[in-house]
Amino acid sequence: MKQMVKMEVHDLNLWYGSFHALKDINMKVYKHKVTAFIGPSGCGKSTLIRCLNRMNDLIGNVHVEGRVLLDDKNIYDKDVDVVNLRKRVGMVFQKPNPFPMSIHDNITYGPKLHGKKRGLDELVEEKLKDAALWSEVKDILGQNAMDLSGGQQQRLCIARCLAVEPDVILFDEPCSALDPISTGKIEDLINELKRHYTIVIVTHNMQQAARISDYTGYFYLGELKEFNKTKKIFTNPDNPETERYITGKFG
């Protein structure tokens, strides 16, 4: 059965000043699947994932060439509204970054900006439930989000992201600041979320990629060395370099 393609990266190159950080990247992100990026630190995983919602636009001195399609439309076209793009492609960061405001206001932040005025309380409940956080916070919605534990903060950030109803959610090492129990919760959550969303996740933890992803890309020094079904990457990779990395003989 042919998979539906949600996003497509074509001949993507990126430079930070004169530093060539991404080299000729080509890959697809399949709808309602989890796509993982693995590879040693500094190889360009974050750089690529940040190209998918144009977060790199915020940094000075970045030059991008190539195309990134979202539902067949190049998001780097001149007529693309970046604000709209980021509504459709949400992002969860490495360090949990809730706003220093109440839990409730964290969730309603995005929807309010986009003009939603009614049904905010229902929305808060719905999204917190989707992010598996509701039972823990339902009585303290007015409390400052900074008082939550790291794992709770990260799930709040996921709920906050869900509240703007994206199609795609990008996770950049969402568990690297969390303990194993919180990590497990986030992994379960990602497994749930893929039924309704398309997910891309960067992880430096290979076991995590193996556990939760359907497709995996292996990066090294700005190049995508291999992109394949996760099962294939972890059992019988095409590229011997991938195999060396997977089996821990390297990095």
């Binding site: 980021r86 970054n97 950030c157 906050r160």
Partner: peptide, 13 residues
Amino acid sequence: PRWDKEGSYALGA
């Protein structure tokens, strides 16, 4: 912090 601002931009602000 940069990540607070990025959190906002990532929500389409």
